[in-house]
Design a protein around this nucleic acid. Structure first.
Lengths: 228, 228
DNA sequence: CGTAGGGTTGAGGTTAATCAAGTATGGTGG
DNA sequence: CCACCATACTTGATTAACCTCAACCCTACG
């Protein structure tokens, strides 16, 4: 029954960098709409005069195949936005279907009003550009991680990242090893075995949650795919 | 020695959607600079009054760790841009080092001039926003693909994608199977075996380069991780 | 103590890469 | 039109990386 509050605009990725002063204006010309799970938000081909920001719930964007099956293009959760292309490119119609996966609240932002606001306030433009380019960098990093295929490479990269961000060869794990393993996309057993082999080979020393890197050179080779 | 021509501005991802009319202006206030392989482009902490577009070659962006090792943050090739954050966020100094990996040509675009141009021409803003959001969608799709771990899941997803984009259950492979396998991140042998097992199980029929999907339901389950 | 949870270790199975042979297929020169 | 060759593709056997499952070891904490 979701008495749960919906996301504030500051948390939406397109708006997070925007000066709160403008958020009021945006809320002003936008329309808050609630959708029940399973309800359609728009159809492919519908005239598109604005885009949506997901404030609560999850929605899916999909196309229909001739054989009737639906092909999900993406799933968007709180904070994400749907059909921003309507804003930037001159698209006139929605290029796919959208439907709520759970009870959801969306903010419908009319294209014209938002563009007018941007036209009048250049710093708004910069904020939106900043949001997008930040997200892009984030995705870039994610892609790099995902394309490290072997468990040892991902672990090695993680260790090197830690060394850089803490600015030293020694650091404490901030999470349970269990949890860390999952973040690296491996199973705790594998994590344990890898760490053990690494300390046997004097690549690192480990005491409880404290880790000291002894051979960063080797870790770099591992992280770029050298077999272990 | 690279008599090889450098990339035209239309091909650079930040600019590709921009009306060519403006490209002249951009070229006008920007500075073309050549760097030899290994040459430094900027140092961390350097005052930043603009960003770079890579027209030729490859460059790396990296940080130094205390122990002297360099941690590569990203590698940017032709068409990419470096330090766009300087443009959008109010960053005053470069947050990392950049160095040419090969002989390279970069276009230095001064922040102030580019922002002025955007301020005067709102459609330029829209083009840049469109570029960024398109790239974002592209990355999104890439991430989805990369997070499909098993070979059968990636193949299944590819087949379903083809069915949607050709709008039918039957279609022709547009590339050599060899090449396709590589695109799916598997080895041709594995590709061949998977296809064979799929036709044995009546999931699809294959004749030369012609493929007909017989059981999309099953492919969907495979693509969402069901073991094969 | 005794138990619970995180962590480690071992045995065994699955997936997909590699290596090594094959079998089409599609030119090309005769 | 055929013999020949290169290249694509297929198939089998072997191997390495990881996962699963099951057991066990700690350490903290009642």
């Amino acid at each position: 029954m979701s008495a749960s509050h919906s996301l504030p605009l500051q948390k939406c990725f397109l708006f997070c960098r925007i000066d709160p002063v403008y958020l009021g204006a945006i809320r002003g010309f936008s329309i808050l709409r609630a959708f029940a799970a399973g309800e359609t938000i728009f159809h492919e081909g519908d005239r598109a005069a604005g885009f949506f920001v997901v404030l609560k719930g999850k929605i899916k964007v999909y196309k229909l195949s001739v054989s009737g099956g639906e092909k999900i293009l993406h799933v968007i959760s709180e904070g994400g936005s749907v059909a921003e292309a309507v804003l930037f490119s001159g698209i006139e119609r929605y290029p796919a279907f959208a439907e709520a996966l759970e009870d959801a609240e969306l903010l419908y932002v009319p294209r014209k009003d938002f563009l007018d606001l941007m036209k009048r306030h250049f710093d708004l433009v910069l904020s939106v550009l900043a949001s997008l380019s930040e997200k892009l960098r984030f995705f870039n990093a994610l892609i790099e991680d995902l394309s490290l295929k072997s468990a040892s490479a991902r672990l090695a990269k993680y260790l090197l990242d830690m060394a850089v961000s803490t600015g030293g060869d020694c650091f404490e794990l901030d999470t349970k090893k269990n949890e860390l393993a999952r973040r690296l996309g491996i199973v705790p057993e594998t994590f344990s075995r890898l760490i053990r082999r690494m300390s046997q080979q004097r690549i690192l020393r480990v005491q409880k949650k404290q880790i000291c890197l002894l051979n960063q050179r080797r870790l770099e080779r591992l992280s770029s795919g050298e077999p272990f």
